[in-house]
């Protein structure tokens, strides 16, 4: 459901398929644990994601607050998911690519 990939200076969290409420509940602790206090930039890679729930949006908010200094970004969001981030106002906080 989530795969963590570390490269120099970057921690990438790759998510798969549907990020519904139950999936997010299952992964939230591990994502928070890996991203808390990390010195790296954090990237949420949504290449495989076709649905995001409120729980996933909240997880993005949490990680945004954990990773200070604008070191959080979201990449490979589908057009529909990009629109969701726009509606939720996330694009003003986080780069969405």
């Amino acid at each position: 459901m989530v795969e963590f990939v570390e490269s120099p200076g970057t921690l990438t969290c790759r998510f798969a398929s549907r990020m519904d409420t139950s999936t997010c509940q299952a992964i939230e602790a591990s994502v928070r644990e890996r991203t808390a206090g990390t010195p790296h930039a954090v990237v949420f890679d949504l290449a495989g994601v076709d649905f995001v729930s409120s729980a996933f949006l909240r997880l993005c908010q949490i990680v945004y607050k954990q990773v200070e200094g604008g070191r959080f970004r979201i990449c490979h969001a589908s057009p529909l998911v990009t629109r969701v981030f726009k509606i939720a106002g996330f694009d003003k906080l986080v780069p969405i690519e």
Partner: peptide, 12 residues
């Protein structure tokens, strides 16, 4: 804030 998140999810 909760309402706009719900609006985003609803859109899908």
């Amino acid at each position: 804030q909760k309402a706009v998140l719900a609006a985003g999810v609803f859109h899908q």
